[in-house]
C-alpha cells in the first residue's frame, strides 16, 4: 500500500488539519469519562467509513479520495480526521447544554462549517467530486449524520448514567 501517489497539497492539508484539530482536542479540559471520550472519538470515523463504503466505491462510486483510485495511507488519515471533529461536535454540544430549536441551529451551523471545510479540501484534491457528488449532497449528509450524533449523544449519556459506578465521574 502506497503512502501517497504524489506528496503535495492534499497530503499537507491532511497533516496540518490533523495536527491542528488533534492539538485543540487534546488541549480542551477533560469533560467526559475516558470510555465516553473513546466512544465519541470512534463514532466519527465509524460513520465516515460506513458511508464511504456506500458512496465512494462501485456500484455507486460518486467521488474519489486523494490522488488515486487505489487505497493509500493518506485515505486512512482522511477517515481518522473525522474522529476529533466528532468529539469536538459533541464536546461543544455538551458544554453549551443546548435545548429545543437551538439544537437544530447548532446542527445547521456545524453542517455549513463542515461543507465549507470540505469545499476547501476539494480545492486541494483531498476529495475529487468529478463523478457526480457535490457539496449539496454533503450538506444533506452532514445534517443527517450530525442529527444521528445528537441522538447518539443522548443514548450514550443515558446509558452511562444508568450503568456508571459509584466512584465514576458524574456526567450531568
Amino acid at each position: 500500500m502506497k503512502l501517497a501517489e504524489s506528496f503535495d497539497a492534499n497530503e499537507w492539508f491532511l497533516i496540518i488539519s490533523f495536527l491542528v484539530i488533534t492539538t485543540v482536542t487534546l488541549m480542551l479540559p477533560r469533560r467526559f469519562p475516558t470510555i465516553i471520550s473513546i466512544v465519541f472519538l470512534l463514532i466519527g470515523s465509524g460513520i465516515a467509513m460506513y458511508s464511504d463504503f456506500h458512496f465512494g466505491i462501485p456500484p455507486v462510486d460518486l467521488y474519489d479520495i486523494n490522488d488515486s483510485k487505489q487505497y493509500e495511507w493518506f485515505d486512512l488519515v482522511t477517515f481518522v480526521l473525522y474522529s476529533p471533529f466528532s468529539y469536538l461536535f459533541l464536546y461543544v454540544f455538551d458544554r453549551w447544554r443546548l435545548e429545543g430549536l437551538k439544537i437544530s441551529l447548532y446542527v445547521l451551523a456545524w453542517s455549513i462549517a463542515a461543507v465549507a471545510f470540505e469545499a476547501f479540501a476539494v480545492r486541494l484534491h483531498v476529495y475529487n467530486f468529478q463523478k457526480g457528488w457535490n457539496s449539496g449532497y454533503s450538506f444533506v449528509f452532514y445534517l443527517a449524520s450530525q442529527t444521528f450524533m445528537i441522538w447518539f449523544y443522548y443514548t450514550v449519556k443515558n446509558n452511562y448514567n444508568r450503568t456508571k459506578k459509584e466512584t465514576s465521574p458524574d456526567w450531568a
Binding site: V39, L42, G46, K69
Partner: peptide, 27 residues
C-alpha cells in the same frame, strides 16, 4: 457486553473489513 464495548467493537470490525476490502479489492 456493555453498550460502549459493542460500539467500539462494531467500529473496529468495520475498520478491519473496510481496510481488507480496500487493500485486497482496490489495490
Amino acid at each position: 457486553l456493555h453498550l460502549f464495548e459493542r460500539i467500539v467493537i462494531w467500529v473496529f470490525v468495520l475498520l478491519l473489513q473496510n481496510n481488507f476490502f480496500w487493500m485486497m479489492g482496490l489495490n
